[in-house]
């Protein structure tokens, strides 16, 4: 009894929460393994195990899933690399140089985060529509256009995280390199970047996860069925917005395939992600 009052009830809460957290995930996994493409078919969790939905998905006859995954990989990959590169450059300036407007710049970056890109969606749409008339390669319904829009948010929370990390690298190392004749760019490349590599990887993982799951902008910019990212395409499958019937089996299988690498990477990098999150807030 005493054990329960002290720690036992905590385990009870933990178990309740685990059920709540795992239920949707177990359910979607079960739906993806059920041969029936409807909602009802998956309600008896793991009643039947069949890989039919996955086979359907990879056959690509009902939905071009592999293309969508490829598009997601391309768009998220390029915009992640761009975002991380731009963020690292800016963070180096913020961490290692003292210049007018430095504090204001850092504050401005945080403030702009309060206004998500969805807020400017109409303007973004009109802008891309207009640019597309002049340069079709970066207009509406192009991956390049979407990537550019994602890159617009490069300077953001991630820049802050990296700046904090660069700040933690002792300046003596810079000095030593400078005495050896290294210029500021050389110091950035050969001293700062390697030392901050773990944090940069975490930032890259977070950025990648965010852009893989981005729906609003993608749904407005992309239109052609073969151009969609997995997030936009799977949403259409689940809600039937593309004029076809909803198919839960296919959606469930697609969701599991998309979520698995995201979860694996997240938990592999968990320690640093949690550390980064809390160090950003808890100084």
């Amino acid at each position: 009894m005493r054990w329960f009052l002290q720690t036992g009830w905590r385990h009870l809460i933990a178990w309740v929460m685990i059920v709540v957290v795992l239920l949707p995930i177990a359910w979607i996994l079960s739906a993806s393994l059920s041969a029936n493409g409807t909602l009802t078919g998956s309600n008896e969790l793991f009643r039947s195990i069949s890989l039919e939905n996955y086979a359907d998905l990879f056959a690509g006859e009902r939905i071009p899933f592999l293309r969508w995954m490829g598009n997601t990989l391309l768009v998220s990959g390029v915009s992640t690399i761009g975002t991380v590169a731009v963020s690292c450059l800016a963070a180096y300036a913020f961490a290692r140089f003292r210049f007018r407007g430095r504090r204001e710049g850092l504050a401005a970056i945080l403030l702009i985060q309060l206004f998500p890109a969805v807020l400017g969606l109409v303007a973004l749409f009109l802008l891309l529509d207009w640019i597309g008339d002049i340069f079709p390669a970066i207009g509406l319904d192009t991956h390049a256009g979407l990537i550019l829009v994602y890159l617009g948010g490069s300077l953001g929370v991630m820049t802050w995280l990296i700046t904090g990390n660069f700040n933690a690298i002792p300046r003596e190392l810079d000095e030593a390199a400078r005495i050896d004749g290294a210029g500021h760019f050389r110091i950035f490349i050969s001293v700062i970047l390697p030392l901050a590599a773990p944090m940069i990887i975490v930032v890259a993982v977070l950025t990648f996860m965010l852009s893989v799951g981005e729906y609003a902008i993608g749904s407005v910019v992309l239109n052609d069925r073969d151009m969609l990212t997995a997030a936009v395409g799977l949403t259409d499958v689940a809600t039937g917005t593309d004029g076809r019937n909803t198919n839960w089996g296919l959606f469930a299988a697609g969701a599991c395939i998309l979520a698995t690498p995201v979860l694996v990477v997240f938990f592999a990098a968990q320690r640093w992600i949690v550390g980064g999150l809390t160090s950003g807030s808890v100084k």
């Binding site: 949707p24 799977l234 995201v262």
Partner: peptide, 10 residues
């Protein structure tokens, strides 16, 4: 960790 749009659709 789970992609938000998937959680919401689920």
């Amino acid at each position: 960790a789970f992609p938000v749009f998937l959680s919401v659709l689920i």
